[in-house]
Amino acid sequence: MNNNILEVNDLKVHFPIKGQLIPKTVGYVKAVDGVGFDIEYGETLGLVGESGCGKSTTGRAILRLLKVNSGRIFFEGKDVLKLKKNELKETRKNMQLIFQDPYASLNPRMTIGDAIEEVLLVHNFGTRLQRNKRTEELIQLVGLSKTYLTRHPHEFSGGQRQRIVIARALAVEPKLLICDEPVSALDVSIQSQIINLLENLQKELDIAYLFIAHDLSVVKHISKRIAVMYLGKIVEVSDSDELFRNALHPYTQALLSAIPVIDPDSKKKRIILEGDMQDIMEPPKGCRFNNRCMYAMDRCYNEEPETIDFGGGHTVDCHLYK
């Protein structure tokens, strides 16, 4: 029996580049270029990778906030890319987004209560009295006082604003939250509070998360499985504990080596990647990681690696294991 709330197959999102003198398409930024994964009901999938690899674009494409060039997105068995306007609005009640910058995602002229109630109005939720009651329940659900509802965003700290954004995302009782780097703009001490809040909400409300981040240590804490993304493609997927114990892709190994270690006597060796990500307009032939990989072979520059299944949900795209 299929227990997946979300299935993404061969997703591609390419942005056209226009010429400076003549408004003609001269190329494409291949931000997402053949991504596929699934998420079960109530599960958290972490999506990690360095800035510019296409993580946030993937999240927005799932919600159809961006134009998708090709691929399939199934939410509870429905093909999201084929939904009409009214059907999409109804489906989006069950898929909500938490943005990276909580201040930028809140209207500075609206009170917190109005910002949360706006979601309820858009989805035709109850009477004004019912909406007020629901708004009070939501703000208390994320650990804030209902007396805050009359205040404006600038009166709150970053952590409080992120709690408000989470409350707003939960307003219409979604089944899936796409968390786009929800703690990267916060202090480390506040990050742990928000992560714990999300974990408690997941247990209480049985929500699934797509948790997008660049910090593997944060992702490990909240995710059941982790997908590692590089230059528009997913290169490794594994159970969280297995990935930290037995990372296979050289890029994943480099990411793990960059996590700070508290023990001063630790002999953990840092893997320093030379060079930068290749131009996303002109992805390299073969493996996209070939110019930075210490194990690169001739075939890495000519053949695109296939996905190899090591069992237990652990897959890797790398010629080293073929």
Rank of each mutant, 00 (worst) to 15 (best):
D10F: 12
R131V: 11
L106K: 04
H214V: 02
K268Q: 14
K322S: 14
Y251E: 01
V218R: 01
I280D: 00
A296Q: 04
V237M: 07
R72A: 12
N246S: 13
V316R: 04
F211R: 12
L63K: 05
K267W: 10
K322I: 10
N2K: 14
P283V: 10
T58E: 04
L144I: 01
A227H: 01
N94R: 13
S238C: 05
C179S: 02
L129C: 13
I112V: 11
I222K: 10
A208H: 02
L11M: 02
D79N: 12
Q202P: 07
R131P: 04
L176Y: 11
V8N: 06
D239I: 09
D215H: 07
G71W: 08
I116S: 08
I194E: 10
P264D: 11
L243A: 03
D38P: 04
I280C: 00
G19Q: 07
L121P: 00
N94V: 10
Q193K: 15
V80S: 06
V68H: 10
N196E: 14
M277H: 11
K269I: 14
Q160I: 11
F99C: 12
A104E: 07
R131N: 05
D10W: 07
L216Y: 05
L210F: 05
N3K: 13
T91C: 14
A169Q: 02
M281D: 04
Y321C: 00
I194Y: 04
K12S: 12
Q278P: 15
E274P: 10
Q253W: 12
R64N: 09
E137N: 08
M294C: 14
S105A: 13
C293Y: 06
L45G: 02
Y230R: 02
A185F: 07
D241M: 09
I212W: 10
R109N: 13
